[in-house]
């Protein structure tokens, strides 16, 4: 899961070296915190959060197999 999110985020941004994904385990769901270079924030959030929402939707594919909940948070 972490690899998939990292792959997608790195493909979207101008500075892939600045991408950091941290995994925060929880009882019901795992949260993935996404950090990118400040200038790349728009590229992973999008207008009205459209890109961030697409990332969350795609992350669900891998999560569904494991029957686990995942949250993807963009951390500024």
């Amino acid at each position: 899961m972490k690899q998939l999110i990292e792959y997608l985020v790195k493909a979207l941004v101008d500075e892939p070296d600045q991408v950091q994904i941290s995994e925060v385990p929880g009882d019901e769901a795992t949260t993935y915190e996404v950090r990118v270079a400040p200038d790349d924030l728009g590229k992973v959030i999008g207008k009205q959060g459209r890109i961030a929402n697409a990332l969350r939707t795609v992350a669900k594919a891998a999560a569904m197999k494991d029957k686990k909940k995942v949250y993807v948070e963009i951390v500024a």
């Binding site: 997608l8 890109i51 697409a54």
Partner: peptide, 14 residues
């Protein structure tokens, strides 16, 4: 098909 559509949106950006 919402996952396929979301991925298509990301692919078009990339």
């Amino acid at each position: 098909g919402q996952i396929l559509d979301a991925l298509a949106y990301l692919a078009s950006l990339v």
